[in-house]
Design a protein around this nucleic acid. Structure first.
Lengths: 361, 361
DNA sequence: CTGTTAGCGCGTTCAG
DNA sequence: CTGAACGCGCTAACAG
């Protein structure tokens, strides 16, 4: 069914190589021959070299593989992962490469799927230390975004611990009963409420480092980490956060590991809660939209558009740029450790003391 | 550098085929030999058959290609495209296939990139009739989501015209000065304000059919399409819609082709505009969040979460299901025309007559 | 500028 | 259950 190069060559009365060149290196063939080849190819319904065969011969798959973590479906629901992917895509376009999303389910077949993917290199979205996928990416140039660090692979990440400390200092100042709204600790994703957990017990580096940074802040502020409640979620999911939030409803300062879960707290009620409205203390031009009855301090992470509108103090980082950085490393073939930028964005949600509530008791 | 099957075979003292079987069809090899093979493979750093070579031999790339339209970066910023992709991904996971996003720039190299991608079939996100990519997808099983229809390719779409008519009847009822907030007409994406354009002049089928449906509604309501202003945007983008909205500020009914651009209209101001608050007239359980000063009727499209919160009348469709349908067709190899479901969701934004405003003049 | 010679790494024959 | 040939469709490297 498929027309082959050899058939075109035979029909055109030239050698196979001439056909190959006519398609892949047109400048190396005389205009006459090239036209002849293209014409007969068209007649025969041959549209060009088979990508699989070419890939075998050139040892280049022409695509970079992206592992977005447990089930692609979640990945697309996470705006940060999506933004990251857009950065990877931008570089792929420049480089003329495809972008293969490698589906991962959390099951045992994941590593095989990753290994068997026909790609020139890997970009791995942040995962846990014990993710089996990490053992398999070493065969080709690979970069992990957000950690963990893998020997031989690149790493693009912000200093999560320093950023967590910075935002922790903003949100925990003066708190008597601080709490953390946390990403999962390990791949089992067991939700739970714990007090002052050892950050080292978290297998997701992002979770581990942020917990450590929050602890740094608490300690610097003269608090006792052991008394800090940490509400661990199964996922970075607003609905889950909303449902679980009552467990820390009496906390007077909450540091959340994402804007999404921070904004899922009941404090953000549209004009319903008592108290004065938060005003935007940041430097963005977006107007204040949702309102926060300032009865306690809250911080998020990522500086999404919603955080700006809500006046949520947060950590700003460009996942898009990190995506580009990862892709560039893989494309160039030289991988290494690359620190990405972050900055603290202080807004109204950590602006005033908790006792400024105007109405009610 | 790369360890080959033959080398493993030699070292293990078996034939190449035994190694092949040991990896690809373990049950056809005795347990003893299999273990021997796996062990020596491990020692030599051989991790399994090369995907490229296997693909060439089996004539299956092991991935399906997705063309998400002009520059992937935009695609990830469109929540509908993202949701669609999640559906495609879900089927890929089931089928054990990769998902290759084929980067497209809008430039002349697009068709080649699509043709040269090593994939088993294509899923194409809705595009214009004259998109060169469409001429190239015929070589493998292909499905277009949202049109245009391509001979030999599958098509998964809702009846955009009927849906537009339905939502048009809701939003345009009683309007004296109706307007449409439209997707682009063609790939040139020239923004403009026109009156009663011929729907046929739109090369994007989605735009064309929705305009035709809106026209149907206007006509049925006794109006004159020729007087209806259509504000054509370059993209489905809230910022652009916000900037351009003043051109139709005096319209008393606006049908928008997406929730995003509908909610970018200045009518949705959080508690700032005069007038009563819209209340959710739909059947969702989400509470009313953003508020709409009901001074004119507005409709959107897609039924996003924001629409539910805002009380925006809209057309509900599951892009995720459509993504799954497309992928299933490609995976199965039998493509065809498949109608997807939609339904009108009437909410407060088209609930009351425009003169029910309570305050001001 | 064009043709010839060799494979890329594997899986599908078909014997044994 | 295992082995030996053969070729998937193409291109690198050289020759002419």
């Amino acid at each position: 069914m498929a027309v082959t190069m050899a058939e075109v060559a035979a029909r055109a009365g030239v050698s196979v190589m001439t056909v190959s060149y006519a398609f892949s290196r047109p400048e190396r063939v005389s205009a006459t021959t090239r036209d002849l080849v293209h014409r007969t190819a068209q007649e025969m319904g041959y549209t060009g070299p088979d990508p699989g065969a070419r890939a075998l011969r050139t040892r280049r798959a022409g695509a970079i593989g992206v592992v977005l973590g447990e089930h692609l479906t979640y990945a697309f629901e996470d705006p940060q992962a999506t933004r990251f992917l857009a950065g990877v895509a931008a570089v792929c376009v420049e480089a003329g490469l495809g972008l293969t999303l490698i589906p991962v389910t959390g099951g045992p077949g994941d590593a095989d799927r990753v290994r068997e993917a026909a790609v020139d290199g890997y970009v791995v979205w942040t995962t846990a230390d014990d993710d089996p996928v990490l053992e398999v990416i070493g065969r080709r140039p690979a970069v992990v975004a957000g950690g963990p660090a893998v020997p031989g692979a690149g790493l693009v990440t912000i200093d999560d611990r320093a950023a967590a400390r910075a935002v922790g200092l903003a949100v925990f100042r003066g708190a008597r009963s601080p709490a953390v709204l946390s990403f999962p600790m390990g791949r089992d994703r067991i939700p739970r409420l714990v007090s002052g957990p050892d950050p080292e017990s978290a297998l997701f580096p992002v979770t581990r480092l942020r917990l450590a940074g929050y602890r740094d802040a608490i300690t610097e502020l003269g608090g006792d980490w052991a008394t800090v409640r940490v509400l661990v979620l199964a996922r970075n999911d607003a609905a889950e956060a909303r449902a679980a939030a009552s467990a820390i409803e009496d906390a007077d300062a909450v540091a959340a590991m994402s804007d999404q879960i921070a904004l899922a707290l009941p404090d953000w009620q549209d004009g319903r809660a008592a108290g004065r409205r938060a005003t935007d203390a940041g430097n963005t031009s977006e107007p204040t939209g949702a309102s926060h009855a300032v009865s306690r301090r809250i911080s998020g992470w990522d500086d999404t558009a919603a955080a700006a509108v809500a006046g949520l103090t947060t950590v700003s980082q460009s996942l898009r740029d990190q995506g580009k950085a990862c892709a560039r490393q893989v494309v160039s073939g030289v991988v290494g450790v690359e620190q990405a930028r972050w900055r603290l964005v202080e807004r109204a949600s950590t602006a005033g003391p908790a006792d400024e509530v105007s109405a009610d008791g």
